[in-house]
Computed example of a mutant assay.
Amino acid sequence: MAITLSRLFANSEKNYNIKLIAGQRGMKNLVRWVHMVEDREVPGFLHGNELILTTGIAQTGTQWIEIFVKNLRKHGAIGLILNVGPYINSIPREVITYCDDNEFPLFTVPWEIHLIDVTFDFCHRIIANEENETSIATAFRNLIFSPGNREAYVSALERRGFHNHGEYTLLLMQAARNGTLISGDEWHNIQFTMQSVLKNIDKPFCIFDQENYLVMTASGVNSTQMEAYAKILNSELFNQFKNVTVNVGISDTVTGYYDMHICYKQAFTASNTAKLLEKQILNYQDTGIYKLLYAVEDVRVLRRYIDDTFHMIIEYDSRHNTDYLNTLKCYLENNGSIQKVSSQMEVHRNTINYKMKFIRENFGIKLEYSDIASLWLAFNMKEIVDRN
């Protein structure tokens, strides 16, 4: 997880005489970077979760501090260090009250302390933490995709609190805006924000990107708990995005991490099934027949089955610009109710009766039990193949 203010400021009072004077409840905030800002009109280069330092050199008096703090918080900063000295000689009570009320940590550092030393130290800690996070993510990737090469992940995970005797569950998430998968910088920003939302989890967890997915796993977390985390993310994070569709898949829970490669496949199945069924969150245990279909790794096998089942009707529809395949699918979805099919397709029931008779007589489909099972299987396969 990204570094918190409380970890970043460990030993800071001893080393730099930095004191926390307000906003204690915000010390679990995650820190992205450290910036010096002297303009009370907070610049637009802040991306969120920055720690700000200021000397007040461009200001007069102390009334500007409250405006400055409010603007920082508005732009997503998570804390402020005031360099107390010739330009800041006191801090108004209303600033301290505002920071306490809004869980915005406010610190002071004496003028004789060189801020360049503080920023160098803090930036070094942030970078070291990011390198640690990258190392953990690499270890989990090796665990998932090269489970036989234990030297590539066991020691790295054990050193960071991920032990082989605990419970593990894997969450896989994909998100799209207006049908286009989110990726790049936006995906990385979402990853950081996810960590902020889940900062109160008291167990080791790791979030990393894998192609067009975000992967989350945690030690000592079962599938029920992971689903609760997914619901928190959905309510506190993704509901804030406009025109964004999120599909989350959750694996079964395993004991020990040697079966995490299986968890990844299960979460992949659940996430893609959630997308097909237009669900936000889906557990692997609830994927039904899609367990079998996604277990077929060679998509050519699915295509062959689809072709064997539908080739006559697909070819006829293509040549004559008809919709017999769609009619058949609608008929099965409505359990053979001509009235419901007629209503859904917005045509007369006699037209549906004619089409179903034509399907029976010309495509060798009798709609007996064995036919219905085979057709449903083929339609489910077709959904997977068409989406991928």
Rank of each mutant, 00 (worst) to 15 (best):
V246G: 01
M356V: 13
M345K: 14
G161A: 09
F68L: 02
H124A: 13
A378H: 04
Q280P: 09
E315T: 15
N164E: 09
G336M: 00
M226Y: 04
L143Y: 05
Y331M: 06
D298R: 01
F192S: 03
I65K: 01
A274Q: 13
H320G: 03
E151Y: 07
D386T: 08
F205W: 03
S90H: 08
P43M: 09
I314E: 05
R73P: 11
E38H: 08
P147S: 07
V341P: 00
F205E: 06
N362W: 05
F268G: 03
I91Y: 01
S196P: 07
R93K: 15
N243G: 06
M381H: 06
V42Y: 07
Q339A: 15
M260N: 10
D117I: 06
A176C: 07
K19G: 09
A218F: 05
A58W: 12
N321L: 12
L237F: 02
T245C: 12
V95M: 09
F208Q: 11
T322H: 03
T60P: 12
E383A: 09
L377F: 12
Y16K: 04
T97I: 14
S196A: 13
I67P: 11
K366Y: 11
G79V: 00
L325W: 01
L282M: 14
S374G: 07
Y305L: 11
